[in-house]
Every structure is written in C-alpha cells, then in structure tokens.
Simulated assay, not measured.
Amino acid sequence: MRYGQGVALVLAAGSLWSLMGLGLRQIEAASVWQILFWRSVGMVPVLLAFVWWRSGGQPLTTIRKVGLAGVIGGLGLVFAFAGAIYAIQTTTIANAVFLFTASPFVAAILAWVLLGERVRPWTWAAIALAVAGMYLMVREGLAMGALAGNIAALLSAAGFGAFSVALRWGKLSEMLPVSMLGGVFSALVAAGVLAVQGQPLAPSAWDIGVSTGIGALILALGMLCYTLGSRVIPAAELTLLSLIEVLLAPLWVFVFLGETASAATFAGGGVLLAAVALNAVMGARAQMAQGLAKAP
C-alpha cells in the first residue's frame, strides 16, 4: 500500500465517522450508555465477518496474533468511546471537542517512546495548525466546565491515541481484530454501567435499530478503513488526518437537518482542513522523494 492510499483510507474513515452526529439525531430516548452498547453490538459482527474472510475462516488464530497490542488498543478504544460520552454529558461540547485534539500529541509521544517513530517537522506544524483551527471553531463556547468532564475528554483523546499507536505497534499485516476487541470491551463496559445505574439494557426497538445501524455501517466501516490505512501512516499523522471528522460533522447536520453553524465554525474548519491537507501533501512528497532516492 502506498502512503497516498493510506491517507485516502484514513480520510474515508473520518468522513464516515462524521456522519455519527446525523445518525444520533435520529435517536428518540436511549441513554448514551444504551447507545454505546448497541452501537458496539452492531460494530462487532461486521468486523468479525471481515476478520473471518481475511483469515480464511480462522478468525481465532488471527485474533490471538495481535496479543498485547490488541488488548491495549482495544482498551484504548473503551477510553476513547466512554470518555467522549462522559465528557459530553458533564462539560460543554466545545470544551470536549477542543480537548479531543490532544490525541495527535498523545499519539506522537507514545509512538516516539514505544515505536521510535519520529514526528516530522511538518506534522508538528500541521498539528499546531489543527489545534488553532479547532480553537476558532469552538472558542465562543469554551468555558472552564466540570473538571471531571474535561479530564474525561483528555482520557478519550489519550485512548484514541493509544489505539492508533497499538495499530502501528503490532507490526502485523492484520490488525483489524484490535478494533473488534475495542467493540467487545466497549459493550461490556456499557452493560456494566447500565447495570450499576439500574437502567434497562434495551431502549425502544427504533433506538436499538438506529444505534445498531450506526455501529454496523458508520463505525465498523470507518474502523476498517482506519485500520487498513494505519499500515503505512505514522500514529501521529493517523490521528491528525482523522480530525476531518470534526470538520465535516457540522456540515452534514447543516445540509440535511438545517442546523446552522456559526461563521467561526466554518472559518476554523477551513484552517483545520488546511492542516490535514498540509500533512497529507508533505507526506506524499516525502514518500515520492524516498522512492526516487532508492531508484537505480
């Protein structure tokens, strides 16, 4: 796989995930933990089917091969999913979204320490530009918020960063089971929280159908693209490229549901898009230069 193909896959993943808000607007009454449970229930069979197909009917062998990297990556997704839910519940959405941009920094540091992946100068510049763009998008709603919610948002960013590093850490041709394990762990955590809170596991049939559909189509296919793209893209760049989700999410609800967004949202989104494009173009040029250098 070429670098450009990997970039296209990760951008496709972020684009799919950006439809999440549009899908969640169709939920009638389900709680966030019920949504997380049924979303995970929808995601896991789809990913398992892909693992089964790619393993030639031996999914357990492929799942065992991911080892510790798979467990850590799966647990990272639990923090990413659950932390985001708790953050949105307890702090402002602007705070949560802004703090989510910490994931490229977390991925960069972990990948450097654990994998020896050096972060290229233009990637640092693109990360800084992305943070600036995110700030422009949400600055009107930024507030101190609840400390626990802010911490949860940072844990969510750290969890997604750890998941991205785990995909690179495995060094295997097939790391899709990591995403599947994340879905299994998330379903177990959500079921546990619902039990502790005394809430029923099942909301209305409509909400179950919408949540399961989100998991099977939007989340699972996005995870598939992201995992495949991770083969050729460093962890810090993976998380940076996935921020395209934040750019597109308000656009979809504006186009299809008529929810207006401020001028600052679109201005910040433009800066964020420039950051993603900068990193993608510079990375492609670097790979092309390496290819020319190796040519006889």
Rank of each mutant, 00 (worst) to 15 (best):
G149K: 00
L167I: 02
V184F: 10
L181D: 03
L181P: 15
N150I: 07
F163R: 07
F163K: 10
A152H: 00
L172F: 03
I151Y: 02
M144L: 12
G145V: 10
I151P: 03
W169K: 07
V178R: 09
F163P: 15
P177M: 09
A166C: 12
F185T: 12
G159P: 15
V165D: 11
R139C: 02
G159Q: 07
S173T: 10
A158H: 01
G170V: 06
K171I: 00
A153I: 01
S179T: 11
S186K: 04
L181F: 15
A157K: 05
V138Y: 07
M137K: 11
A166E: 08
L172T: 08
M144I: 11
S179K: 01
S164A: 15
E174G: 12
G170C: 09
M180I: 08
G170F: 04
A146Q: 00
G149Q: 00
G159Y: 07
I151T: 06
S164G: 14
E140S: 13
A162Y: 02
A146W: 01
M144C: 02
L176F: 04
L154R: 01
L181Q: 14
L172V: 05
A166H: 05
M144G: 09
S173D: 14
F185S: 07
A162E: 01
A166M: 12
E140F: 08
F185K: 13
A166G: 12
L147E: 02
G145S: 12
S156E: 11
M137P: 11
F163S: 06
G182W: 03
I151F: 03
A158D: 02
G141P: 09
S156M: 06
S173M: 02
G141V: 09
F163Y: 15
M180F: 06
K171P: 09
A157V: 11
A153E: 02
E174N: 15
A152R: 01
V178N: 14
G159T: 00
G145E: 05
L147D: 04
G161H: 04
S179L: 09
S173F: 08
A166W: 08
A153W: 01
L172N: 09
L181A: 12
F163G: 14
G182K: 11
G149C: 00
L176N: 13
